[in-house]
Design a protein around this nucleic acid. Structure first.
Lengths: 134, 134
DNA sequence: CTTTTTCACTTGCAAATCGCAAGTCACAAC
DNA sequence: GTTGTGACTTGCGATTTGCAAGTGAAAAAG
């Protein structure tokens, strides 16, 4: 059980006072922002994340979810007691990552051939962007 | 000597057609976007990147620079012949990463106590943002 | 009521990556 | 000629990945 200690709003490592550096300490890896992307798409349960086409290894999925929880980005609430099952949701702090995902999706769609922005629920609504304007 | 082959605009691994996933395959790690940040700040030479306060290990710096080069995000041009010395600069594709760095800086400054957005040269000008309004 | 599935994770482990320290190479300075 | 500087490379132990298989409990199937 990795649910050891969160010591509230942990100061993390903090390798520098730079917001970019510290942000990357939290989600700078190949999987974390992908589970955030799935959360933004409305995924709530372990199996839904594991079922995404990128096929995250289940041990990493469990690890990333628990890190995101201790980082205050997702919440983990039981939706059934026996056997204990939880569902995950973004906190406001997690939802605030949306512009980052958006920016990455924009860049990728424009600069990596063969990729496309996939539907992100309520994407336009949340940022006030017009679908037809850029 | 990691300068092996770039095979033009390589199709990369491409673990899915998702722009976010493929973007993360390129810069989804703790250091890559940090050197992009430094490039946006105007850093040009190896020593300048190595001198940033996050203290990237030099072997990783060399590796990240060559990956960024093969990804078409930075260019490496000699500024002296003997001994051969190069300087690095962002391509347009690399400069297009600016909104991502911006989004991360915004998020970090707002959600990670003790961090702040550091000056990013010509940040406002490139995005049409007003420095005094937020 | 016994067997099979499903869900949500763990565990094991080989292979890849990281990060620190030290080394190299060529010239420039002292 | 000894030291310094810039740009890397090399070694290597420690950590992290990623794949496969296992676990536990209930729900569905036979």
């Amino acid at each position: 059980m990795k649910r050891k200690k969160a010591s509230e709003t942990a100061p993390l490592e903090g390798r520098s006072p730079c917001a970019v550096a510290c942000g990357l300490d939290i989600f700078g890896d190949r999987w974390t922002l992908l589970v955030v992307r799935d959360l933004l798409r409305g995924h709530r349960r372990y199996g839904e994340f594991a079922g995404s086409k990128e096929k995250i290894p289940t041990n990493l999925l469990a690890d990333r979810l628990s890190r995101l929880e201790t980082a205050g980005i997702v919440t983990r609430t039981p939706y059934q007691d026996n056997p204990p099952r939880y569902e995950y949701a973004l906190t406001p702090k997690g939802d605030a990552l949306r512009p980052i995902i958006r920016a990455i999706a924009d860049w990728g769609a424009q600069h990596i051939p063969g990729t496309r922005r996939m539907d992100m629920a309520a994407q336009a609504a949340a940022t006030g962007d017009k679908p037809s304007s850029r």
